[in-house]
């Protein structure tokens, strides 16, 4: 039987679904029997989800404009 510490150390890989099936079965056996680890697992999964849900990555227009100006300047230098 896994300890809670064992469970935590595998948690990240478990949530990424990158543990082999034997370990996965042991981990799932542990959370069924351990309410604390169930909560930690569930809230860590939600932690990851809430960040993944933040898809906003538009760039401010002024920053885009200055970037393009810097690139154009470099283009012009190279063209010489």
């Amino acid at each position: 039987m896994l300890t809670c510490k064992d469970f935590l150390s595998e948690l990240s890989d478990y949530l990424d679904d990158s543990v082999d099936s034997e370990i996965k079965a042991k981990l799932e056996e542990h959370i069924k029997a351990c309410p604390n680890c169930w909560v930690v697992c569930d809230t860590t999964r939600k932690t990851i989800q809430v960040y993944k849900g933040q898809t906003e990555c538009s760039i401010p227009l002024d920053i885009h404009a200055r970037l393009m100006a810097a690139i154009e300047k470099k283009c012009a230098e190279r063209g010489k």
Binding site: L8, L11, S12, L15, V40, T43, T44, T47, I48
Partner: peptide, 11 residues
């Protein structure tokens, strides 16, 4: 793993 656990605590 540590980053996720620390964020979980904070959130």
């Amino acid at each position: 793993l540590r980053a996720r656990l620390q964020l979980r605590e904070k959130l």
